[in-house]
């Protein structure tokens, strides 16, 4: 077996183990939340009998270990359980609702795709922007441009997200009505319209994630500029741009890829504030709402998706870093 394939399989295995451990942590953490769904839904005047009835019906009276394994077994088969909040309470009196409208998967799926769409649009804008900015900053290091790029990106990462969002709304939606300030997208919307409505939140997020990637690109490249092979390229009379793009960048890819992956993971898991500001129906809002009403199956599923996104993106970053190393691609 080629060494690269072996490493990739190893990492994949490790990723699965991590995901398993994370699933235990998620389950434990969610169960440690004070109060439960029955109390939350019935309010303060609930009789103990009613609370107990709902708990029994939802299986909350089972010991935690049993519930964990039931949940895990379901999740492995692709069944993330049923949302408590969307459950048809008719079933409590014995009538089968017959529908799977309440399944967590059904509830999360559209939100998840919305989040992926937003993350995708942001990535397409932010990653090239940050990397090119980083390359230019490295090329003109210590110049006015370099300083401006650093200050600009640091300012934007240091400002609260909602503030950036309002500034963008002010300039791009209010003063110059180019883009819609509300991102109320729905199923069946055309791609163009969807893209237009997603653009403002995507730009906000771009401002949030650019600094990290740009500064890492700049640092990783500058780090290499003292290498003998960079000196060699200069002594061969290569232009500064060529020295950086052709000679430094390929060797600086590993750290850059890792930071990009980290920021992409953030785009999938950490954009609640931006979603709220633009009323964007993403998974972040759903997650927060579900925590509020202790809709445990949805919370767990969201957590699992977030964890899987982190693990998968880091795994991809690892693999791409490995592939960017010719020593591994072309063994002796």
């Amino acid at each position: 077996m080629s060494p690269v394939l072996k490493i990739i399989l190893q990492r994949l295995g490790l990723g699965l183990v991590t995901l398993f451990v994370v699933s235990i942590l998620i389950f434990a953490a969610v169960n440690m939340l004070p109060g439960d769904f029955a109390q939350a839904i019935l309010g303060q005047g609930a009789t103990p009998e009613a609370v107990a009835a709902i708990r029994r019906d939802l299986g909350l009276d089972q010991p935690p270990v049993t519930r964990y394994f039931l949940w895990l077994a379901g999740a492995l088969q692709g069944d993330l359980g049923n949302s408590f909040a969307q459950a048809n309470f008719a079933s409590f009196v014995g009538a089968d609702s017959g529908g799977s409208a309440a399944s967590v998967a059904k509830q999360i799926a559209p939100r998840f795709w919305n989040t992926m769409f937003l993350a995708g649009v942001t990535a397409v804008i932010a990653v090239p922007f940050a990397v090119i900015l980083g390359i230019l900053a490295a090329l003109y290091r210590n110049s006015a441009f370099d300083k401006f790029a650093n200050i600009f990106t640091l300012t934007s990462i240091s400002s609260p997200e909602f503030f950036l969002a309002y500034v963008l709304i002010l300039f791009l939606a209010v003063l110059n009505p180019w883009l819609p300030s509300l991102s109320n997208i729905y199923i069946g919307m055309g791609f163009g319209e969807r893209l237009e409505k997603t653009l403002l939140p995507a730009l906000t997020l771009t401002l949030v994630v650019t600094a990290h990637m740009m500064r890492m690109t700049r640092a990783a490249i500058i780090n290499l500029l003292a290498s003998p092979y960079i000196e060699m390229a200069r002594l061969k009379g290569m232009s500064p741009m060529r020295v950086i793009v052709r000679h430094a960048l390929p060797n600086a890819l590993a750290p850059i890829i890792n930071v990009v992956a980290l920021n992409l993971a953030y785009l999938i898991t950490g954009v609640v504030v931006v979603e709220v500001v633009f009323v964007y129906p993403g998974i972040g809002q759903l997650f927060v709402d579900s925590v509020k009403i202790r809709d445990i199956p949805v919370v767990q599923a969201c957590c699992l998706i977030f964890a899987a996104a982190y693990i998968l993106l880091n795994l991809t970053a690892d693999i791409m870093s490995i592939l960017s190393n010719p020593r591994l691609r072309h063994p002796k």
Binding site: S227, P228, Y229, E231, M232, A233, R234, L235, K236, G237, M238, S239, R246, H247, P250, N251, S324, P326, R327
Partner: peptide
């Protein structure tokens, strides 16, 4: 002007070829 000379009319051979060849190409 210097870049046009370097590599073309004046060339350099470094002490450690292993470090002076770019590992990526």
């Amino acid at each position: 002007r210097k870049r046009a000379l370097l590599g073309k009319r004046i060339a350099y051979v470094a002490q450690s070829a292993a470090a002076s060849f770019n590992p990526a190409h």
